[in-house]
Amino acid sequence: MVTIIIWTIAVVTILGLVLALVLYLVAQRFKVEEDPRIDEVEKAMPGANCGGCGFAGCRAFAEAAVKAPNLDNNYCPVGGNDTMAKVAAILGYEVQAKAPQVAVVRCNGTCAARPTLNEYNGYPSCKVKAALYSSDTGCAWGCLGCGDCVAACQFGALSMDSGTGLPVVDQEKCTACGACVKACPKAIIELRPKGPRGMREFVSCVNKDKGPVAKKACANACIGCGICVKTCTHAAIVMENNVAYIDPAKCKLCRECEAMCPTGAIHGVNFPKPLDKDAIKERIKVRQQKAKEAATAQAAAVTASAVANKKADAPAEAVTAAAAKPVMPGAEEASEKKEVTNE
């Protein structure tokens, strides 16, 4: 009995040693020389292999980052600044901190606001549906609701809201890898800076149809009326192809556009207080009143001086007309500056 046990142990031990030797030799023989920093960088990565950086995975990113002369074109959106700081430390590069981003769904055509006109009965994929026809609603631009973005998200940050029929982004889980942006055939999802304490303001609509058409299709659509552009005192809103866009770099989060939007297409999120539309409207009204008064006053002053000039030599009307034109924008500018300082 004892001999059997001893023999067993001996055989297993010898076998283990021999195999270990073989493995060691093979590993030595087929060793691939690699920059050890690649392993280090890879360890610093989040390891999700999501491809958000534009490379096939974290390993590929690490290889590219080690080879690259700087880190300007290599950024891991998932790991964000912390990861990039670590990578930079390993490689001895400088890296500039980027504002953290988050995916934003720019469609608020809920089931209630955007009635369906027909019924889609094909493979439940936005890609297939978009290739087939405009949409099962009247809006040819909005969310198709088949959830390609949800399927594309590797972080579980997207889910379909069965009440609205629209995808919802969980901003805690979203890593801004951009997979959903690529998956959406209607280009609705945009990566936007998270904003201070997560506060951000955006137009939740991409409908390029003219106002009446857009409105007919969806009660919440941006109808391209331009009120927001006129309201904005920071020139942060541009109107292109009948749809407004808020430039996150310029937006000061005053929420005036949101209050003024007639269809509710502009959304503000993560603000500490709910939007008090009436107060903001009142504020805008007062400001516009003041601006108007200032303009009239200035115009009156110009007219007065023109009258004085007229008395001197020139014919009045021509001068008034010539003078009035440049004065008006000037007045607006003045009032605008005033508003900016007010904030």
Binding site: G122, Y123, S125, K127, V128, A131
Partner: peptide, 12 residues
């Protein structure tokens, strides 16, 4: 199975 729905995408 909606074969052609998907194959059309793959063909493209």
């Amino acid at each position: 199975i909606p074969l052609l729905d998907n194959i059309r995408m793959g063909k493209g």
